[in-house]
Amino acid sequence: MVKVGLRVTVLAYLTMLLVLPVAVVLWHTFHSGVGPVLRALGTPAAAHAFQITAVVTFYAVLANTLFGVLAAILLVRYRFPGKRVLNALIDLPLAVSPVIVGLALVLVYGRTTGTGKALAQLGVSIIFSIPGMVLATVFVCIPLVVRAVAPVLEEIGDEQEQAASTLGAGSWQTFRRITLPAIRGALAYGVVLALARSLGEYGAIAVVSGRLVGRTQTVTLFVQERYQNFDQQAAYAAATVLVATAVIALLISRLLRPKELAR
């Protein structure tokens, strides 16, 4: 009796909260066929939004992958003063509201600040353009690669790395031939998480991009802008692409999840 009650409650909760909303988005997208969906996604504005998202995601994930591997190696293999603080700082971005991320970056790199003016004289603009959006995306994704790679690095130990260096391998050679192959799976897992997070970022991007239609509009901003301008077909079509991406990322991350993480 308790068991049945629990099942019914949980399934009803999940259906109302999760399944129904996502299903209705799909229904709204496709209820007049695939043609309008493709047309909505083929407009120059939509195509441009996808392009901006791709560019921002590419640079943000690239930067965080390099940073993530470096930080994970330092945290696991070395000792240095302030290690605990660094370890805590890496998780900090998860607890910060996306809007505050945007606000923080505007306060330092905005056009009215000292840094912003100095950079503007060099011809670099950060806020309301791509570099700022990359920075915002980097901020929100910082922990993902580090936290995927670090446990695996710890698990594999460093005997092989030490053997390699005893045999005369330099540190780059040791990394490329020994460490990298060993953490490949975990790295891919972290990269998929970072990709999914980057593609879906909204709040921080909304602040730093200035939401300039046709210039700094990403796919998530496109969804919101189209919806509020009563172009539902385009909003739902783009949302469905994001849902599909999220589901694919979810499934891939399940397959890639390192067994060191899955115990």
Binding site: P21, V24, L199, V223, V243, V247, S253
Partner: peptide, 28 residues
């Protein structure tokens, strides 16, 4: 697997989905 969906789904899409089901023209 479904439980992780809210982490993978962009928040604006979550908002759109909820507004579609529990909005002015709510199908339920």
């Amino acid at each position: 697997t479904l439980i992780d969906l809210p982490f993978a789904l962009p928040t604006i899409v979550a908002g759109l989905a909820l507004l579609t089901v529990y909005g002015v023209k709510s199908p339920v």
